[in-house]
């Protein structure tokens, strides 16, 4: 696995809504590439007989009955909100 390109790092930063300095971009380019190289070791294993694994938990079919219970009060729900108005979270204008 070659090193991630600068454009890839910038795209990942954009998707994560992170604003990186040029130094940070170079730092993360190294670190992300190193993580990918580490995970890539898995490719050296023969997994021909192993079914695809989507969960490491020894569980399946964990479901609950369809019963409704009251949750938080609206006041509690909004307790951590940076800004509120009319019983709602208020965020920066999002164009419809």
């Amino acid at each position: 696995m070659p090193k991630l390109s600068m454009a890839e790092v910038e795209n990942i930063a954009h998707l994560a809504r992170l604003k990186l300095t040029e130094d940070e971009k170079r730092l993360f380019q190294e670190q992300l590439s190193s993580i990918l190289r580490y995970v890539e070791m898995l490719n050296t294993l023969d997994t021909a007989g192993v079914p695809p694994t989507t969960s490491a938990l020894p569980l399946d079919n964990v479901m609950r009955p369809d019963e409704a219970h009251a949750g938080l009060s609206p006041a509690d729900a909004l307790l951590n909100a940076p800004d509120t108005a009319a019983g709602s979270f208020r965020v920066k204008q999002i164009l419809p």
């Binding site: 369809d66 019963e67 409704a68 009251a70």
Partner: peptide, 21 residues
């Protein structure tokens, strides 16, 4: 009756904001 991944009531039409969370 309830939401997909939690037990909050799934009704929302005409409800006061953030009453089912």
């Amino acid at each position: 009756q309830s939401k997909m991944f939690c037990a909050c009531p799934a009704s929302f039409f005409g409800a006061a904001p953030n009453i089912n969370t």
